[in-house]
Write a protein that binds this DNA or RNA. Structure first.
Lengths: 247, 247
DNA sequence: CGGACCTTTGAATAGCCTCAACATTGGTGG
DNA sequence: CCACCAATGTTGAGGCTATTCAAAGGTCCG
């Protein structure tokens, strides 16, 4: 039953993945958007030496709900989910994070939710204690972290309106618009969703069947188009916005 | 229709209430729990001079969703709600704040949700610009604010599990346990809820009728006892915890 | 091409909501 | 001090949405 700790070891403590080691921040693609953006070059390199680059495969979990908070990280590449679940296995995805986002719980003993890679991903991983210490000595970093946390809180609270008060149809429409904003469509206008139907259901607080039904109906109405398992084309954004009933 | 701005003026800009003015932090009941706790006496007084004490009556709204973020505040006394709503009037309460909590959106242009007093309340109110400036010069304050925001985010995400995945019964049980933890019971073990049935419904993402039905059923089962409109006695906490299906 | 997994579709059910009437509460004015 | 009234809360009946359970259809992998 408890293979959890073993797997944690694998990903967090003894990465089997290419360690991407030794890379400096000079070529880092997220250096101007992550929380380290405001540090000067020397400080950023100092922070970099505290951490290390880690590669994850889709499906790997980096942190588990309720575990001791031992690491925090910047997301360099890929998409991950934050999730909590009830004792009997119902899951709720409480956040989806993208490149340049920050994950983990600094200044706290416990990780309040699990973090799992949805796609292959790369992280810039720091031991929490060392990160906390560094942050205490660098106000710019802490300020940036505060800004990001305030934004996260605002977005999370907005999502509560969706979970508590929107219908399935509104939920799916809102989700698709959100994806359209965050992800880049290919030449045909098709977006590759980083989430399976089950994961979409877990984001929206509905069942997989309801997600499927709503999407096929929207396709029938010509609002969206479905391409394979993960592809969606947002054909009529105006109609989607009407369906989403945004505040 | 738009009496909103008028009322905002009344509460935020030209308080009709006792201004409680001139009080220093020495006798402040929340000074050891609010975000100013880590400041030295001189800095705390300096911060105090930036702001002013304001009294609110139950029902008054201090900030509106989407408005410019012009003020932030510490709650000295009372209970307030944070809420968002859809275009067609469905409301979701996204947070309930108590004495020593911090409200408003520092370092950001917009207030993301409305703030309304549920009981009579007293605030220590700061113009946002001046507060932001002070915070930038005082790392301890910013650190404390970060800690609090991280905690808020964790609790908000936990609440998403309730909104997205719990049944009405589990929601009500979880809510009552939460109230039992935050509020102090009187000699008879009765808790005075700061929320009406409608507000409880808006916290839990269900209807007022469902709240009422669940509560009367729990009373019938002997798990709780209802005293007047706002009173509840948690008779069997163990049973309540079982009903709440906590993670 | 086979097979595992994911997704879609269908039918029946349950849970919550809606609408409506009624009861209680607590405040107000006679 | 009591009667009344508006606001709040409770109860009931019926309907609708989303869930559950089940099976078939696609998709992508080796």
């Amino acid at each position: 039953m408890d293979m959890r700790f073993d797997m944690a070891q694998k990903t967090a403590a003894a990465p089997m993945a290419r360690s991407c080691g030794g890379q400096s921040c000079d070529m880092c693609v997220v250096r101007d958007h992550a929380i380290c953006a405001d540090l000067n070059d020397a400080d950023r390199e100092a922070l970099s030496r505290i951490g290390r680059r880690v590669a994850l495969h889709a499906g790997q979990t980096v942190m588990w709900e309720g575990d001791d908070s031992t690491v925090v990280a910047n997301v360099i590449e890929g998409t991950l989910k934050l999730a909590t679940s009830t004792g009997d296995g119902r899951e709720q995805i409480v956040g989806v994070v993208y490149a340049s986002d920050f994950i983990g719980r600094p200044f706290g003993a416990r990780t309040p939710h699990s973090v799992t890679a949805l796609t292959d991903a790369r992280l810039c991983l720091f031991p929490r204690g060392a990160f906390d210490g560094f942050a205490m000595r660098h106000g710019e970093l802490q300020h940036r972290l505060l800004q990001r946390t305030l934004d996260d809180l605002d977005r999370t609270r907005d999502w509560m309106l969706l979970l508590g008060r929107k219908t399935a149809r509104e939920k799916v429409a809102t989700f698709l618009l959100d994806m359209g904003r965050r992800l880049r469509a290919d030449a045909d206008g098709v977006i590759e969703l980083p989430l399976s139907r089950q994961q979409i259901a877990d984001v929206l607080g509905i069942t997989i069947e309801t997600v499927s039904r709503q999407m096929t109906e929207m396709k029938r109405e010509g609002v969206i188009d479905l391409v394979g398992r993960r592809g969606v084309r947002l054909v009529d954004i105006g109609a989607l916005e009407a369906l989403a009933e945004a505040a």
